[in-house]
Nucleic acid binder design. Sequence first.
DNA 1: GCCGCTCTCTTGACTGATTCCAGAAAGCGG
DNA 2: CCGCTTTCTGGAATCAGTCAAGAGAGCGGC
Lengths: 143, 143
Amino acid sequence: MATALDFTQMLRAAALRVTRPRVAVLGAVLAHPHADTDSIIGAVRRDLPEVSHQAVYDVLRALTAAGLVRRIQPPGSVARYESRIGDNHHHVVCRSCGLIADVDCAAGEAPCLTASDDHGFSIDEAEVVYRGLCPDCSTTRSS
Amino acid sequence: MATALDFTQMLRAAALRVTRPRVAVLGAVLAHPHADTDSIIGAVRRDLPEVSHQAVYDVLRALTAAGLVRRIQPPGSVARYESRIGDNHHHVVCRSCGLIADVDCAAGEAPCLTASDDHGFSIDEAEVVYRGLCPDCSTTRSS
DNA sequence: GCCGCTCTCTTGACTGATTCCAGAAAGCGG
DNA sequence: CCGCTTTCTGGAATCAGTCAAGAGAGCGGC
């Protein structure tokens, strides 16, 4: 498991100031993939009870801008953050319970990045959201 | 161009009551693809100045449930509605100006529906959002 | 064509996530 | 250790979307 020291180095590497709230938020995101902002605030406050939600929002934005975390916004849900970055993976969202799981890109690389007709757009990223039922909900529903 | 009569028939076919607000909303969505809720309210009020935003939200939900329109929620934007349904197409969103364009699925059918590892999920839909710069913003930025 | 049932629309208040602001506090380089 | 600059705190504001109650309107049967 990553330690506060690792987080410190990650922050420094991104040219960000190292503060207690930042280390805590970074640790929370690493520890809870796909956590929504509220959960992150809760996790952070277990270490630092006095952090304001404001600080968390601000830190998350800074981390996102620095590329240390990625922000995902599944339809019908609030913003979530994850720490797997740079590997072009996508997400499955359960229609019933909202569970999110990581999925590697269909062909192992980035086939979805190429649209058949790009309308003159210069596309630099593609995000894929699969919708369906997670194993649990699927079982419950069919039984 | 579709007429109020066509909308009436579409509503009846979907077993929905035909009301003035519904015809107007359906027409607005057909006329303005990718419009956000506010724009739709505005468009509807050009015909029926007295409709409440509530009615529009309600109608949009009814139309979505009936499968007459599709709701899309690009990250960083409010909900939008479109009338192209059932053809598995996706969207390009301009990072700079927010413009949205339709894109047919990369391989002409539905390759993106198959995830390499579905974690036991039963996937029934995939939504792809391409991110990039539209021609206008691309030109402006590079010049 | 009229009646009544039921669904839909209007009005207005409310929620919950996110953002804006100003001042206090804390990290970093020298 | 100092001072500058960024960051954090606390509180208020915004904005999309939702909830609720009562008035109004479509549809099916007569």
